[in-house]
């Protein structure tokens, strides 16, 4: 099983080295061989310098694409290099590499196509539950996903997700770049891919700036809901034609 961690990084000079070191340390202790690729999304700080000096495996995007475009680059990389599992993993220290095994297990056992690491499924597991606004947003999105696809996803904006080979191939070819996490979840669900959630713990950000600005939360919510409604409609029509 070749496992790849996709680490999108935008202005993460403070965190990225720690994140990569924690993966290497995890590999040493557990005698595993989890590979990673950092996608430097046109950072304006010294992220690229840190990546080069420490010889971390990375792809340097020549222009800033946003999180969706960066993550898709990771999936393309995984697809071209024949990885069996690709895991999205934040470069800012929010995600814990110790959960990688847990999040991969359902895929290795062949039960599902995608596993989403969620903060909300098991309250004891995760100390960091994130802010009220963000939780409210997640609840609204998850409500709409439940109506449109009939499946409960408690943490649709989670950036900690594992995908199997089929999903990697699909994402490499086509990935929503505007609101990547919720939209891609809906697209997978309407195309009958199997998704489950696994409770994980997430830490508070150590440094850097979150990609979601809270002043824009309402605007974001409206657009996400619209996007997932459109996704579910157009894909259903396509299925009927077949």
């Amino acid at each position: 099983m070749k496992i790849l961690l996709i680490i999108p990084a935008y202005n993460e000079e403070e965190n990225i080295l720690n994140t990569c070191n924690s993966i290497e340390k995890y590999n040493k202790i557990n005698n595993k061989n989890i590979e990673y690729v950092v996608i430097n999304d046109g950072s304006t700080d010294n992220t690229l310098k840190v990546l080069r000096e420490n010889k971390l495996n990375h792809v340097n995007l020549i222009k800033n694409l946003g999180i969706g475009g960066a993550v898709q680059t990771g999936y393309k990389y995984a697809y071209e290099n024949g990885y069996d599992i690709a895991i999205q993993f934040d470069g800012d220290g929010q995600h814990d590499v110790n959960y990688v095994e847990k999040i991969c297990k359902p895929i290795i056992e062949g039960q599902v196509d995608m596993v989403i690491g969620t903060r909300y499924l098991n309250k004891e597991e995760s100390k960091f539950q994130s802010t009220f606004m963000r939780r409210l947003g997640s609840n609204i999105i998850s409500f709409f996903i439940r109506i449109l696809c009939g499946k409960k996803i408690t943490d649709p904006t989670s950036g900690f997700r594992a995908a199997n080979k089929n999903v990697i191939e699909k994402f490499a070819k086509e990935y929503p770049t505007e609101y990547p996490e919720p939209e891609s979840t809906v697209q997978l669900l309407v195309n009958k891919y199997k998704i489950i959630e696994v409770p994980v713990s997430m830490n508070e950000r150590v440094g850097g700036v979150s990609s979601i600005r809270f002043g824009k939360t309402v605007d974001y919510m409206v657009k996400v809901v619209l996007a997932i409604i459109i996704d579910s409609i157009s894909f259903r029509r396509k299925r009927r034609k077949k």
Partner: peptide, 13 residues
């Protein structure tokens, strides 16, 4: 544009 940037960046690597 997105596709081009991705492909060029990966080719550079």
């Amino acid at each position: 544009n997105i596709t081009l940037i991705q492909e060029i960046s990966m080719l550079k690597k």
